[in-house]
Design a binder for these strands. Structure first.
Lengths: 212, 212
DNA sequence: ATCGTTAACTTAACATTGTTATTTTTAAAT
DNA sequence: ATTTAAAAATAACAATGTTAAGTTAACGAT
């Protein structure tokens, strides 16, 4: 029974309701295991109605991921107010890893599964908006630390530094998320690996005087 | 028309034929996009016949991945004969990254997709066999470099060092494979990122005297 | 008030997938 | 020659993403 004519606000509400249901299921069961029918049931619609709001499952996933990237940015935002550039950088990294490891399925969705590349022209995320764009936060955090002179003088490109640190931290998180339960590997405790990675990055990137 | 009674060698041949066909398709189309029917057609069987050789698609994938891990180990083996422990370590790492980036779909299958954890008890790979087990190669390469005294004296656990370096290199490869085409990120050239990562690892882990 | 019109939704239906049940073929054993 | 069972194919099922075809009811125009 369709109680007709929805304001665009109401339509938006349905959209986000669908996204919330989808995210909930994605997170607990993994993207592939979740069916459109299951999402629909969760949100109280028939399966085909989802297609009135999202053109297909990929687009639904893309929308959820975009929203989560914004959430990540929101979560990281708290560290941006730290005044000391070095401390800000360190806390930013720690928050990132913490987010990844406490929300492994979020993280997997965002950075570890192939999906349509994120096109800034059509994304719901505003690029370079610090409220939404975690990557631009990273670039800024590293750049300001760089201006503060914490990095080795041979390192002249803050963006390259940022991408390197990101890769290192991503590797830590990704292996943990995907292979932590693999009996093949005699994993050292996660805490030890995190500490070792941070230590390697600091010694590898910063001036001697900066650490310890 | 079944030309009956196969020796176990013949059965093994069919098994590997199926695996080869599956790998070929997995690599070019991604694991999810490949159907059992497509694999079967490629190998000249009916779809259901695959189930005489593999209990399901997951097991087929697992078998392909195991075989590829062995191939990775074979590929890395060439570096093990380098006599200088430091050079061996560096070449080993470079080969690993090169393998990952020239075989992105192999790599994705092996380390970037969730699948049944690899149980050493039932794996076709012989753990600690240097011909087959790339992880044990890594541990040995790092351990011998450690014994040669190339690492900072504060680093006392070669396994932890190995897992940290692996994570760093994995992060580099994984981001490249999954997000290289993402217009959101203004990626620095791959070469620059590789060089920056290696440099960070070296400065972060090795004695000052060791590099340059 | 009534009558289309159409937005919002549902039910049917389809093609494709992984997988199982059933049946066919045929080489060997008796 | 007849039986047996391995090796394969065909038929068939349930589940999935998705499209096509209805169905319902709120609104605008008369």
């Amino acid at each position: 029974m369709p109680p007709k004519v929805k304001t665009s606000a109401e339509k938006q509400a349905v959209r986000t309701a669908i996204m919330d249901a989808a995210r909930e299921l994605f997170i607990h069961q993994g993207v592939e295991a979740v069916t459109m029918r299951a999402v629909a049931q969760q949100v109280g619609y028939s399966a085909t109605s989802l297609y009135l709001y999202f053109s297909d499952k990929d687009q639904l996933l893309r929308a959820v991921v975009d929203a989560d990237v914004i959430k990540l940015a929101q979560s990281l935002k708290s560290t941006l107010s730290i005044s000391d550039p070095l401390q800000r950088f360190l806390q930013f990294g720690q928050h990132y890893v913490q987010f990844a490891l406490t929300n492994p399925n979020h993280y997997r969705m965002m950075f570890m599964t192939q999906h349509l590349p994120c096109d800034p022209a059509f994304s719901s995320i505003e690029q370079n908006n610090h409220e939404q764009d975690a990557y631009s936060q990273l670039i800024d955090v590293v750049t300001s630390a760089w201006h503060a002179g914490v990095f080795k003088p041979t390192l002249t490109d803050p963006v390259l530094i940022a991408q390197t640190v990101w890769a290192a931290m991503h590797g830590l998180c990704a292996l943990q998320i995907n292979l932590a339960d693999d009996a093949w590997i005699n994993w050292r405790p996660l805490e030890a690996r995190m500490q070792a990675m941070v230590s390697m990055c600091m010694h590898g990137l910063m001036k001697e005087t900066t650490h310890e």
